[in-house]
Design a protein around this nucleic acid. Structure first.
Length: 440
RNA sequence: CGGGGUAUAGCGCAGUCUGGUAGCGCAUCUGCUUUGGGAGCAGAGGGUCGCAGGUUCGAAUCCUGCUGCCCCGACCA
C-alpha cells in the first residue's frame, strides 16, 4: 500500500480524553475514532489489526473443532424471556422497539439464540459433540465506558458455545477451548494466564478468565511466576484425546492463579516468595461451563443411546478481539509509539523514501516495493513528500515490525538501512540482501 | 446511578470574573529556500463560541432550561 493513497489520519497531539497509553496511541496512529461514548469507528489501520486478530482466533477455534456461523446483532425479546434473562439482565441490555412495536434488543451475548438454533435442528446424541461460534459485534450499555476500545459499549466478540450429551463430554469441550485459548494468545505474542474466575450472570460452576499482565489492567490478580515461562501446546496437539486435554488443563491449573474475586490469601501465601506475583491484568478471554442453565428452560434435548431424552450440557467461550487490539498495545509500546508483534501487525514492513523527487531514490523504492508486493510481503510504502524526520516519527508511531529506509546517501554506497522497531537495531544491507531477508 | 468537571477553527488552548461583535500554537493551502529523527521565511483559508429561551442598544461573556463529552466512585467481555 502506498501511504499517499492510504487513509492514515495521524495526530501529533494527544486528544485530552485519552487516559491510558493504548487509547492515546490508537487515536494518534489513526486506528479508531470515537463516534459516541464507548462507540468507535475503526479506521483502516485499526481495522487491519482487528482482522489479523480475528483470523488468528478463527484458525485456533477451527483447529479445536469449533464451527463458524454468524448470528444477527438484533435479537427478539421473546427469546430472552424463555431463559428468564430478559428481566434479569438489567439496563446493560439495549432494548429497542421496531415499527410494529415488537420488543427487540441489541445482543449483549448469544446463549439464548444459539440454544434456539441448536434445538431447532439437533435431535440425536450422534450429532454431538457440537461447538458453534461466531465473531460478531455486541452491545452492552456500560454505565461508564472508558479506556477507548478496552471498555467500550459496542465491541467485537468471538463467542463459542459447546453442546454435549453428558458432563464428561462437556468437560472435554471445556478443556479443548482452554487449550485453544492458550494457543490463540500465544500466537499474538501474549502471555495469557488462565485464572479461576467468578461465573457472574452467565452462571455455572467452572470458569476461567485469561488474563494478560499490564500495569493499566482493570483487575487485580495473584499468581505463580512459573506461568510466565510455560510453553503452550503445539498446533498438532491431540484435541480429540480426552486424557491429553485433561492433562494439559491440569498442568496449566496446578499453580495458583486467581483474580481478586476468587482470591484465596492462604493459598497465595503458600507460594515461595520469589514466585509469588501480585499484579494488575487485562481480561482477554473468559470461558464457562454452565451445564443445563439454558438448555433446560429452553428445552434443548437430544435422544441418547438409551432411547431417552437428555438435556444437553453447555458451555460458552468468549474472546474480545477489539479489546485485544488495545491490550496488545498496552503490552507492546515504547515512548515513540506502538510495537506490533509480527502476527498482528497491520503491515509487515514500512518502506520509507527519504527523498521523494530524487530519481535514484524513487527508482530504488519503486523497484523494491514492487518486488515486496510480488513476493506477498505486505508493505506500507511511505511515498509522501515529507521530510525524513516526519517519516521516521510516523513509522515509529504506527509500529510496523521492520522499517526499510532508502535515502540518497546510503544509496550512493549501494546500501539500504533496515531498522527493527522492537530492538531498534539497524543494519545496512544491499538491495538483494534486503529482499532476501524479507522474502526468503 | 451518585459526585465533580467541561463544551470557543481539524487537535491543544486563551478570552467569560469586569458584556462592545473572537485570538494563540500546531495542523491545512500557496510560494520560495530546505531535506538521514516531526524545517525556515512570507502569505492565505477555516469558527451560527454545544442547543434553546431570556436580560440588554449590544451576549462567547450575565440568567434559565436542555444535551453531548470527560474524570472519581459503585458495576462490568
Amino acid at each position: 500500500m502506498r501511504l499517499s493513497r492510504f487513509f492514515l489520519p495521524i495526530l501529533r497531539e494527544t486528544p485530552k480524553e485519552a487516559e491510558i497509553v493504548s487509547h492515546r496511541l490508537m487515536l494518534r496512529a489513526g486506528m479508531v475514532r470515537q463516534e459516541s461514548a464507548g462507540i468507535y469507528a475503526w479506521l483502516p489501520l485499526g481495522l487491519r489489526v482487528l482482522r489479523k486478530i480475528e483470523q488468528i482466533v478463527r484458525e485456533e477455534q477451527n483447529r479445536a473443532g469449533a464451527v463458524e456461523l454468524l448470528m444477527p446483532v438484533i435479537q427478539s425479546a421473546d427469546l430472552w424471556r424463555e431463559s428468564g434473562r430478559y428481566d434479569a439482565y438489567g439496563k446493560e441490555m439495549l432494548r429497542i422497539e421496531d415499527r410494529h412495536e415488537r420488543e427487540m434488543l441489541f445482543g449483549p451475548t448469544n446463549e439464548e439464540m444459539i440454544t434456539e438454533i441448536f434445538r431447532a435442528y439437533v435431535r440425536s446424541y450422534k450429532d454431538l459433540p457440537l461447538n458453534l461460534y461466531h465473531i460478531q459485534w455486541k452491545f452492552r450499555d456500560e454505565v461508564r465506558p472508558r479506556f477507548g476500545v478496552m471498555r467500550s459499549r459496542e465491541f467485537l466478540m468471538k463467542d463459542a458455545y459447546s453442546f454435549d450429551l453428558d458432563a464428561e463430554g462437556a468437560r472435554h469441550s471445556y478443556n479443548k477451548m482452554f487449550v485453544a485459548y492458550l494457543r490463540t494468545f500465544a500466537r499474538m505474542g501474549l502471555k495469557a494466564i488462565p485464572m479461576r474466575a467468578d461465573t457472574g450472570p452467565i452462571g455455572g460452576n467452572l470458569s476461567h478468565e485469561f488474563i494478560i499482565l499490564a500495569s493499566t489492567g482493570e483487575s487485580e490478580v495473584f499468581c505463580h511466576a512459573d506461568y510466565l515461562s510455560k510453553d503452550v501446546p503445539d498446533a498438532d496437539v491431540a484435541f480429540d484425546d480426552r486424557a491429553v486435554m485433561q492433562g494439559l488443563f491440569d498442568s496449566w491449573t496446578a499453580n495458583y492463579a486467581a483474580t481478586s474475586e476468587m482470591h484465596d490469601a492462604a493459598a497465595f501465601e503458600a507460594i515461595p516468595d520469589a514466585q509469588r506475583m501480585s499484579a494488575r491484568g487485562i481480561e482477554v478471554g473468559h470461558i464457562f461451563y454452565f451445564g443445563t442453565k439454558y438448555s433446560e428452560p429452553m428445552r434443548a434435548v437430544v435422544n441418547g443411546p438409551d432411547g431417552k431424552e437428555h438435556i444437553v450440557q453447555m458451555g460458552s467461550y468468549g474472546i474480545g478481539p477489539s479489546r485485544l487490539v488495545a491490550a496488545l498495545i498496552e503490552a507492546n509500546h515504547d515512548e515513540n509509539g506502538i510495537i506490533w508483534p509480527e502476527s498482528v501487525a497491520p503491515f509487515r514492513l514500512g518502506l520509507a523514501n527519504l527523498k521523494v523527487g530524487d530519481a535514484a531514490t524513487d527508482a530504488a523504492c519503486a523497484d523494491l516495493y514492487a518486488k515486496f508486493e510480488k513476493a506477498g510481503v505486505d508493505t506500507l510504502y511511505d511515498d509522501r513528500d515529507e521530510r525524513p524526520g516526519a517519516k521516521f516519527a510516523t513509522m515509529d508511531l504506527i509500529g510496523l515490525p521492520d522499517q526499510v529506509i532508502i535515502g540518497p546517501k546510503g544509496l550512493a554506497e549501494g546500501k539500504i538501512e533496515v531498522k527493527n522497531r522492537r530492538s531498534g537495531a539497524r543494519e545496512n544491507l544491499s538491495i538483494d540482501e534486503v529482499l532476501n531477508k524479507f522474502t526468503a
